[in-house]
Amino acid sequence: MMSFISYLLNGLSLGSVYAIIALGYTMVYGIAKMLNFAHGDILMVGGYAAFIALNSLGLPVPVSVLVSMVVCTLLGITIEKVAYKPLRKANSLSVLITAIGVSYLLQNLAQLIFTANPKSFSSFVGIEPIKLAGGQLTVSGETVVTIFTCVIIVAGLVTFINKTKAGQAMLAVSEDKGAATLMGVDVNGTISLTFAIGSALAAIGGILLCSAYPTLTPTTGAMPGIKAFVAAVLGGIGSIPGAFIGGIILGVLENLAKAYISSKLSDAIVFSVLIIVLLVKPTGILGKKIMEKV
């Protein structure tokens, strides 16, 4: 029983990381209607930025987190301006291929700068493990902080979208860019803001991921990026609560599959679940019915 709870908590923690990354995927998709496959690599850059800030520059943890978020925000906005904005009217396949190109560009740049040798990432979480149930259950500080951070981010984003003008503008752009323009919403500015928020979240996701799994390489973001994409699709791409639910389900499933079925098969199991869910409900768990324009 204790081991089950322990696996579950680890799953929740991993799922929270997926959810934080998936939020960026889902927001960018919802507003710019594109899949930013470089999102996972922004996470990796965030990891390196945090690593340098903390280990090489000796900055305090909160400042290092901030540095990483700023670096990723600027990177995200730049990528959007340089690579995606010129393709705003191009077909979605061109944009998708460009995004994959950006992904490889970031990975290879990181390899050039930091080499392929893994950096050992020192945890950003300074909390001692918590012992529960008379010492039978140990919960790491990283687990607690990750789950907590994720919940705060989701609650914050939902509030931001529903209660602020900028959030409402995002919803308007997501539904109809032309009509949003008529309301006075700067569509390009709103898309930039979305990339900024998504990228800043990727930085947090990267730091939390590397704190729990402390090896940092230029491909660190690749697999979590794909998993987060799966989480976003599973939950219903474009939906913020969907990204959260999808991430959590994916993380828990992956950890339980590793523990009880096979650690080698866990990814296969996770992706099979995706396929089954999409067969039954193609728009994902919370996905909106796609309305055809007449």
């Binding site: 409402q168 539904e175 032309g178 949003a180 008529l182 309301m183 309305m291």
Partner: peptide, 29 residues
């Protein structure tokens, strides 16, 4: 997007209301 602030509003063909938002949210936009 800068015209509406100058007092020129446009009601587009086909209405183009924000279907997934409430009437109130549409008005506030």
């Amino acid at each position: 997007h800068q015209l509406v602030a100058n007092g020129l509003a446009h009601v587009p063909e086909g209405r183009r209301v924000f279907a997934t938002l409430s009437v109130y949210q549409n008005l506030m936009l």
